[in-house]
Write a protein that binds this DNA or RNA. Structure first.
Lengths: 323, 323
DNA sequence: ATGCCTTGTGTTACCGATAACATGGGTCTA
DNA sequence: TAGACCCATGTTATCGGTAACACAAGGCAT
């Protein structure tokens, strides 16, 4: 593998000039710069990351903390990881996965944290290096997330657009920001339609939402749409309705949230609000790298819009769905 | 952060002695060794990975190639990753995720490859550094996998144990080793029971298996068990049977394969053959690290036994299930 | 007692990059 | 036209480890 020195020799300049071409190209005359570029591509030069890391007093590693038990972890994490990995690769950073067992801090340049619950914040404060959260929060941490409120407002509105007269919310019973935002999106949309909110909050498990709907099914005569805070809940709801003999989408609608993997497991496949998870992962990576570069300066937050994916669990809209 | 030098100073020895204590402790007298250990823990010494990598002409990076489209990727990959990451962490290795977009080779010490299809092998031959596959293969690559044949033999036998008189195989129509092994496990078990095999092969998608069973349902009067090559297929089968009004588990049994995440999505939850995925990920990591250490020497393969998890989609066994 | 081997430890050089400083030639100003 | 200043480039030292070699002390055979 060619080194800086090899490139320098080939271009008849010093190593320092080559290094400058790479890191501060504006400080080198165009002539030499092009000589160096030529030499680099001729030798197929790839920088030695370890050497770079050592010289810069960096590790070129970003740790990803997944603060959830692995066996309940959502499938969409894979997409998140893929996006994250892409962003880090671009800057020659490596990803280090840290699961709940080994929450070791240190030996990295920054952190991405997912699956945060409110109880985790205290602990996070003690970490010194740049942190970016994947998931909205009220504690002032930089984050990337989807617009949870808008998402549920969209699905609730869409339920009305499809002509369902009763719209029920099946939410996640966690005291966390994302869960509250989704509920709020529902509540606001209901208010706008002058309809009384009907809210359930349960654990984010399909058989729990299944039980819930099974138990309360008689309360819901026809023309009801269940808007759910996750596809996982929606799957359970769909199943419960079908078992009770309810007709989807004619008499009952179901709308999920997430749109990664699980939405396609149901039959009919779920109408859902799809998060651009891979893209969000990518931007999370970019954000943490930017933060590292800028010595930890605040990055604020980046919020992505999720899109409605109409499928088999809702009937055709009566008019064009509102944007 | 404390360095080798700091530890050396504190223990009144040279840096070299400290390095030896870490890498070749047997070459240092017990007396000094303990002095050094004391100094290390007192200073909470953590080796600088970049420096180590540079000195050893290593990168301390293992790349994971996922040769599948991200949006169809199985949820159990998360468990795999978690195990893999654990193993790499132990030796201060970082994981670099590589998805189909950017199959860049280089800048790492070794590779783990998953989602191999037969067509990928040619390309793999050209890679020079240590490779370990996650998934059985006939091409002589080192690998870690579950015993696919035994797994399906177990589920098929269990179907008979539960008293189902017809056992049907729903397999994956790929020309790959794992798919063939699963089918063979079924075939062998059927032969042992002097029962004629009934085999379907379809894409590994739940709505495809759903359609399949829906279409052929009339061929299967009561007392049939469907043994599937994946939980994904099993979910579709379960749904199709229920939609047709078949009773699970009384008249129809369904047995899946994998036992990560999806098996709990169905209702009733799937009887399945569970792979110890996280453990397998861990051992894959260990294997590739060992291979790196030993300059690429062959490691053979490591095969894990999957375990039967009896749940709601099969009725109670008539006798104790055969091991 | 001499020489030789072994064993344990320290010294030196080096891995591949970068920051800080040194140098040398040209331009601008008084 | 001397001196100050700037710009582009080279030189040196350094990041934190490790291999290779140097060296001193002790054991053993002759």
């Amino acid at each position: 593998m060619a080194t800086l020195g090899d490139v320098a020799a080939k271009a008849h300049v010093s190593k320092m000039t080559v290094s400058r071409v790479i890191n501060h190209p504006e400080k080198v005359t165009r002539e030499l710069r092009e000589l160096v570029y030529a030499a680099m591509s001729e030798l197929n030069y790839q920088p030695n990351i370890a050497a770079k890391a050592l010289a810069n007093n960096r590790t070129q590693i970003v740790k990803l903390f997944i603060l959830e038990k692995m066996d309940t972890v959502e499938p969409y994490y894979m997409s998140l990881l893929a996006g994250l990995a892409d962003a880090l690769d671009e800057k020659n950073y490596a990803l280090q996965l840290v699961t709940k067992n080994s929450l070791e801090v240190g030996n990295c340049d920054g952190y991405v944290v997912t699956g945060m619950r409110n109880k985790d914040y205290g602990w996070l404060e003690t970490v010194e290096k740049p942190i970016v959260l994947y998931g909205e929060n009220q504690m002032g941490f930089d984050y990337v997330d989807t617009d949870n409120l808008l998402g549920l407002r969209t699905s609730t509105n869409y339920a009305f657009t499809c002509g369902y007269t009763t719209v029920v919310f099946v939410g996640i019973n966690l005291p966390d920001s994302f869960a509250e935002s989704r509920e709020k999106g529902y509540t606001l949309a209901m208010a706008a339609h002058h309809a009384p909110p009907i809210i359930y909050r349960v654990d984010n498990r399909s058989h729990i939402s299944d039980d819930l709907i099974t138990k309360h099914f008689t309360k819901f005569p026809k023309n009801v749409c269940f808007v759910c805070a996750s596809d996982r809940l929606a799957i359970g709801v769909e199943r419960a309705i079908q078992r009770q003999g309810g007709k989807i989408p004619e008499d009952y609608g179901v709308i999920g949230f997430d749109g990664v993997f699980l939405d396609r497991i149901g039959s009919p496949q779920l109408t859902t609000i799809r998060q651009p998870v891979q893209k969000m992962g990518y931007e999370t990576g970019r954000m943490v790298l930017r933060k590292i570069e800028e010595n930890g300066s605040p990055q604020g937050h980046e919020v992505f819009v999720s899109t409605l994916v109409p499928r088999g669990t809702t009937r055709a809209p009566k008019s064009l769905p509102a944007k």
